[in-house]
Amino acid sequence: MFMRFFHRMASPPYFYVISGRWLPWLAVICLALILAGLYGGLVEAPADYQQGDSFRIIYIHVPSAWMSLFIYVVMAVAGGIGLIWHIKLAEMVAVSSAPIGASFTFLALVTGSLWGKPMWGTWWVWDGRLTSELILLFLYLGVIALYGAIDDKRRAGRAAAILALVGVVNIPIIHYSVEWWNTLHQGPTVTKFDKPSIHISMLIPLLLMAGGFKLFYLIAVLMRLRSEILERERNSKWVTALVGSEDRRQKTEDRVQESDVDPRRVGP
């Protein structure tokens, strides 16, 4: 049952139609989570006794930092699936995730630096986590650059997937190397990123924001996937039918559901 669902979802036309139905719902839930999280974080939660109101940036910073790592892992896993089973959709998930992941990484860096200004008095400190985050951004940019440099998009997707896999093996090594380097060069500084015992009224909005960000990622990746599918399959009958006339959309949906679905086949 599950395998059958998986197999069907891996077929681009079927995926295109289904994801189109999901998108509005996901958007509503995502918006609700983020609004609730923002309200809880900016209004409900008490100010920090040391940092005052400036701590509230964690409601953007921490979920972005979580997302940056999460998306890299998703990218590598999707890339691995795409390479091993030749599922084109998985490769597309990998390459569509890269720019989103890079944006979250960038957001985490910017918010970290904004937070650092009142804390440290400078915009940038070679703090272990910030440095790892910066290197993670480089890894993302490498994947994006490689994908952009190869003309044949199928080949580009597979090359980017390999790079993502190599990167995911290296991330822990890089992370611990940088942490170790940081403790050596700076001495044991008390960083604000240490896990403090966080109060429950601060934690709940944080988790809501994290859920909202995850959904936002899902929505963004679905939308990128849909346009990527249309672009790659522009020669196939179902895309011509879809783009040719919107009012025949229902017909296409029916035809797609009837037709045999094979994830490995392009339909020219």
Partner: peptide, 12 residues
């Protein structure tokens, strides 16, 4: 592009 791919991996 090669330098962009490889240098971050050289950091450790």
């Amino acid at each position: 592009i090669l330098s962009l791919l490889v240098l971050p991996l050289y950091i450790p």
